[in-house]
């Protein structure tokens, strides 16, 4: 059983224990988010790492509604532009801060729809240009704010409102895109993370912040509303995503991929542990579950054989 405080494979740095989590909150209460929202948790933790001299660039999505005239829960600067241009806006801010000789950190916070799909161009451009900011994608594997529509981050066979269960079609027929590897191919710091492992996530945000250029984090967040589970089980459920091998935790640095957690061949929990707890997978047949298990096993075979990248572990 893995303690959520640490993962094997990470070197020691700040945020090693829960005692190291800063006490100050830079986003306060009174938010309109769903109870148990993983997206808000991700923003709260990222801001503890980025600090108070930060500009948050928000891409349209659930987090946009945190601020609704005339109230905001923010204690740091924030700008909202549109859904697809958070990275380009951040580029402009970074250059202007340089022109004005001001030192501030820039954090982009956008959902998987805004990052994987519509915002891909501006994100790729910013990574290729070497613009120095952190981009955290809070990944609830769908377009959450509009009510659970399919995005390229949605996993195989998941039910969404645009890939519903009917007589002719049964859920999402496509596998999800692996954004962290795509961003890693740009030569920037790129990592996956999970709200169930907050210290690991915070260490990665710190690394992304220190990296001279874009730092990209793909954060799997618990979304009780769209995935269909009780809010209190959120952290346990996304923890299972890591423990079943469905959501690999890894970092890409300097073109090398480093796996953060691998218990060994045959030691991952069966994928059913993750799938059975959510309404969006309630319709799965035994055959479909077997297919998902096979895909996960195959992926880990490739990781262990060093086929995905030049890996450090294997």
């Amino acid at each position: 059983m893995m303690h959520m405080g640490g993962c094997t494979g990470l070197s020691k740095r700040k945020f090693n224990t829960f005692k190291d989590v800063p006490n100050k909150n830079l986003i306060e209460g009174g938010t309109p988010t769903c109870p148990g929202c993983g997206g808000e948790l991700g923003l709260k933790l990222a801001l503890k790492v980025m600090g108070k001299d930060t500009v948050v660039v928000n891409a349209s999505g659930c987090m946009t509604l945190l601020t609704n005239w005339p109230t905001t829960p923010m204690k740091v600067s924030l700008i909202h532009n549109a859904i697809e241009n958070a990275s380009s806006t951040a580029t402009g801010i970074v250059h202007a801060l340089k022109a004005l000789n001001r030192k501030m950190n820039v954090l982009c916070y956008g959902g998987d729809g805004a990052t994987y799909d519509i915002g891909f161009q501006s994100l790729s451009g910013a990574a290729a240009r070497g613009d120095d900011f952190v981009y955290v994608c809070y990944n609830n594997s769908c377009y959450g704010n509009t009510g659970n529509q399919w995005s390229t981050a949605t996993p195989l066979y998941a039910r969404t409102t645009t890939t519903p269960i009917g007589k002719k079609h049964r859920g999402n027929p496509l596998s999800r895109k692996d954004m962290a590897k795509i961003m890693g191919a740009h030569g920037v710091y790129s990592a996956t993370a999970c709200t169930a492992f907050p210290l690991d996530y915070m260490r990665k945000v710190e690394k992304a912040k220190k990296f001279k250029g874009l730092g990209f984090i793909d954060l799997l967040v618990n979304c009780p509303t769209n995935w269909g589970f009780e809010a209190r089980n959120g952290i346990e459920i996304v923890k299972k995503a890591v423990l079943t091998g469905i959501w690999p935790l890894y970092e890409v640095e300097g073109g090398r991929l480093k796996i953060n957690y691998d218990p060994g061949p045959g030691k991952f929990l069966p994928v059913e542990e993750f799938l059975k707890s959510q309404d969006r997978f309630k319709h799965l047949t035994k055959k479909e579950i077997k297919e998902i298990q096979k895909a996960v096993d195959k992926e880990w075979e490739l990781y262990r054989a060093g086929q995905y990248w030049k890996t450090d572990e294997y």
Binding site: N81, T89, T91, G92, I93, H95, A96, L97, A99, R102
Partner: peptide, 9 residues
């Protein structure tokens, strides 16, 4: 978008 970010700064 970058112009908006820069001018907003």
């Amino acid at each position: 978008s970058a112009a908006v970010g820069a001018s907003a700064t």
